[in-house]
Amino acid sequence: MKSWRAEGICPECGNQNLVTDPKTGEVSCPECGYVVMERDVDRGPEWRKLEDEEGDRSRVGAPLSIMYRDHGLSTVIERVDEDATGRKLTKEAREKMLRLKKLDQTSQVNSSETRNLQQAANVLEIYVDKLHFPQSVAEMAMTIYRKALKAGLVRGRSIKSIMAASAYAACRLSGMPRDLREFERAYPLVKRKTIAQGYRLLLKYLNIRVPIADPAIYVSKIASRANLDQRTVQEAVRLLQEATRRGATIGKDPVGIAAAALYMACQETTQNITQKDVARAAGVTEVTVRNRFKGLKEILEGEQPQSTV
């Protein structure tokens, strides 16, 4: 006996789209008008007037968070030397509780896996802080790391390098422009090359498909560092779109291309800026900017887009 609730079908006419009216508290079929149920349950937040019992009305604690090694679910012994009645503990009891607390703490982080996650979470925190990740990206990074850990990719490599690579992958996946140089600057203990290695490893074994980095997303950041105006940014983005359409950005460092496009846009909006300044703002070498600039110029000024690929 399957109920309509499990199937969501009108028992009269078989319509699949039942409609709930919060005003009347009725679930009904919009086709035949059959009232399937009365007195629907209010699923909103519980809200009762508990004037005399102050305190919060919630029956639950904080939500699970992937950012903690135990998802924030562990129970710890509090550091209060009082018993339930509020009396001070005797010296013996206090020392005993202290010992138990220490024992409990060490027993929680016992397996190498949890210890590993704890360390990784600490590293991630640094990146979150320095690179201003939104929470969602941080969580994505942690998920990737957990997968990597399960797949045994961390063994033989440093925790921080894989964590950095996961964070980088999460950035790429969510379209947040952070390049490897910034990663290195934020946390110099992990070198750019190490992150790149780890990143390729993750892509290979975890089957992550990353969208190609669009140089346009780096433009506004570089522009803000080089103090360029909004008009230039728009022009650069326009140039980049054109270049991408003609396939000029394939296989090139997106930051370099973005920098070159900005430099090019500056010339058109007649803002005075040297290649050196753009390069510094973007964190690439002058040579890169110059080469990308040449490449861009050729493609954008050339009439046959196909020949350049």
Binding site: P22, K23, T24, G25, E26, E38, R39, D40, V41, D42, R43, G44, E46, W47, R48, K49
Partner: peptide
């Protein structure tokens, strides 16, 4: 008529709901 509370199945409280 209208919705009821989850816990007690009594009518909800307050104008907003």
């Amino acid at each position: 008529r209208g919705q009821v509370q989850l816990l007690t199945r009594q009518p909800t409280e307050g104008r907003s709901r």
